[in-house]
């Protein structure tokens, strides 16, 4: 009797400990939000900045000159530009590769393609940064002489290569989850494989594909080492990918690598940038999760 009671108590204790581990994930989120909010508040109460300037000014000049400017738009613009370039590569090619893998590819080709994509997904981002800087940029400069040493184009392409496996593997999962009966019904009406893939399977798996797109874009927005190496360090409000831009993450790297004093305004500004970045990726992942949850309900 007593032994059983001790045993039961022990099990409760173990389950309690497991629960504590789970609560840690919530503490992590609360910690991130709390720290970003507090440091951003400290940034905004500094006399040199105002909330209005942060959101409405188009000049980001925190380090140079007499008068400092903290308008976040040039950094957002850099991030959007790099992300857009990456999306142009990763989204279409990732999806087409996923369709090929799921609908067309013979087993032998799959056996080559899947590992190749897995390796691409496992390569550290700093390696892609090196690739952009040492391989892509010189190659692009040979095509178009007006491309600068640091530019948004090669950084964006490298980010695209990095996110391509994410799109492919998540989209392929979604495409494969489409029930066989749907395909067979379409074939029975005389559809070609092309018709089946694009007009039956793809629409049925659309929410999964959209989710993969959103997650890939979120990764691109938060990507740090590639842009820190290849995109440059000049915050500019431009849509020309040939020149250098600074992204939000790129600015944070510049600050944390540099010699700015930790109480200084430039240092604090990196927290405000981090908060903006966090909100952007959070919104993207939340929508992605929501879409994914809906798609799961449909087929399970």
């Amino acid at each position: 009797m007593l032994r059983r009671r001790i045993q039961r108590g022990l099990e409760r204790l173990i389950i309690g400990l497991l629960g504590a581990a789970a609560v840690l994930t919530i503490l992590t989120t609360l910690g991130i939000i709390g720290i970003l909010l507090e440091e951003t508040r400290r940034f905004f109460i500094m006399p040199e900045v105002s909330v209005a300037e942060f959101f409405f000014s188009t000049r980001w000049e925190p380090l140079l000159g007499e008068e400092k400017h903290f308008g976040i738009w040039p950094l957002v613009c850099g991030t959007v530009l790099v992300t857009a370039v990456s999306a142009c590569l990763a989204l279409p090619f990732g999806l087409i590769t996923a369709i090929y893998l799921s609908e067309y590819a013979p087993a032998r080709l799959r056996a080559v393609l899947k590992p190749a994509l897995e390796i691409l997904a496992g390569i550290p981002t700093v390696v892609y940064g090196y690739f952009a800087l040492a391989v892509l940029t010189p190659a692009l400069q040979r095509i178009d002489g007006s491309i600068e040493t640091y530019n948004a184009l090669s950084a964006g392409l490298a980010v695209g290569i990095m996110t391509l496996p994410i799109v492919t593997s998540l989209s392929e999962d979604a495409l494969r989850a489409v029930p066989r009966s749907l395909r067979e019904g379409a074939y029975a009406t005389g559809a070609t494989k092309f018709d089946v893939s694009l007009k039956v399977v793809l629409p049925a798996a659309l929410s999964g594909v959209v989710a993969s797109y959103l997650l890939a874009i979120a990764r691109a927005v938060g990507e740090t080492m590639i842009v820190a190496l290849a995109a440059g360090g000049l915050a500019r409000l431009t849509l020309d990918p040939r020149g250098q831009v600074q992204t939000m993450t790129g600015y944070m790297v510049q600050i944390f690598l540099g010699d700015t004093t930790s109480g200084g305004i430039e240092y604090r500004s990196s927290y405000a940038v981090a908060a903006a970045l966090f909100v952007m990726t959070l919104v993207l992942t939340l929508i992605g999760q929501f879409v994914l949850a809906r798609y799961r309900e449909e087929y399970e």
């Binding site: 919530i26 990764r219 938060g222 740090t224 970045l277 966090f278």
Partner: peptide
Amino acid sequence: WFIQLNVGNLAGVPSIVYGILGLTV
């Protein structure tokens, strides 16, 4: 339910933001 949602979100947080958390904590 919240922990489940939260784990998915944490996976999407840029790693540099974790760096900021680590710096403070």
